[in-house]
Amino acid sequence: MAEEFRFAWMVYSAGTLVLLLAGWWFMRNWSWAWLRWLILTVTAAALLAPTRWGEPDTPVMPVLPLFVYQTLFDQNGATPEVTASLVIASGGAAVLVILSGLGLVLIRRLRARRREREEDPYLNAR
């Protein structure tokens, strides 16, 4: 990757990180933490997922800005490769957050049941 694109990726990644931290800061008092994490993770995946378009030797670009650019300024709209990359990155991030959320709910439920069994005087009287 050329030096200019490496520097551009560093600036873009830092700006995205600042944007995500600001989003987390303003949403930190939400009662639904899972929704906050879902929004932030899907946004991060859409903004930071790399993709190539056109020639194989073209530099890697972030998928969401490239999708918006192609949608607005190309005559044929966004290419299928870029659209698929955006859908896969966003969907994968959403699935990751949903699965981790389900895992946490399962672990909390198991801990609550174990605590109930330990505190039950009838089960502990044996």
Rank of each mutant, 00 (worst) to 15 (best):
G103C: 07
F7E: 15
L96W: 03
P80R: 05
A78P: 01
P121V: 04
L96R: 02
R28I: 12
G92T: 07
G92N: 11
A8Y: 07
L104I: 11
A33Q: 15
F67E: 00
A2D: 15
R52W: 09
L19K: 02
T79R: 06
R115I: 10
L102K: 06
A46K: 02
I98P: 04
R109C: 01
T71E: 12
N124S: 12
S85N: 10
A22L: 13
Q70P: 05
W32G: 05
P59H: 10
A78D: 01
F67H: 00
T79K: 05
E55H: 07
S85F: 01
G77T: 05
P80V: 12
A46G: 12
V95H: 04
L123S: 08
L104V: 11
L17A: 15
V18R: 07
R114C: 06
T51A: 13
V18W: 07
W9F: 10
A22S: 11
T83S: 13
A44D: 01
L17Q: 06
A84V: 04
W24P: 02
L110C: 15
A94C: 06
A22F: 11
P62D: 08
A125S: 06
A33V: 11
R108N: 12
L35P: 00
Y12M: 09
A93H: 00
I39P: 00
A22K: 01
A112V: 10
W53F: 07
I88K: 04
N76K: 00
L40K: 02
Q70F: 01
A44P: 00
I107N: 14
R52P: 03
W32P: 00
P65L: 07
A93K: 00
N76F: 09
L110W: 07
R111P: 03
L110P: 01
L38C: 09
L86G: 02
A89K: 00
G23T: 07
S90M: 12
E119Y: 03
V87G: 03
E118Y: 09
A44Y: 03
D120E: 08
T83L: 08
W34H: 08
R126H: 12
I107A: 15
E119I: 02
V82R: 04
V11L: 12
E116V: 06
G92D: 05
T51V: 11
L110S: 10
A33G: 08
V11H: 05
R28M: 12
P80I: 08
R108L: 15
Y122D: 11
I88R: 09
L99V: 07
W32T: 07
Q70C: 02
L48C: 14
W53Q: 03
L99P: 00
G54N: 01
G103W: 12
I98C: 08
F5S: 05
T58Y: 03
A112Y: 10
E81D: 08
F7H: 10
A2Y: 03
R36K: 14
P65C: 08
N124K: 15
L20Y: 06
V87I: 15
L106S: 14
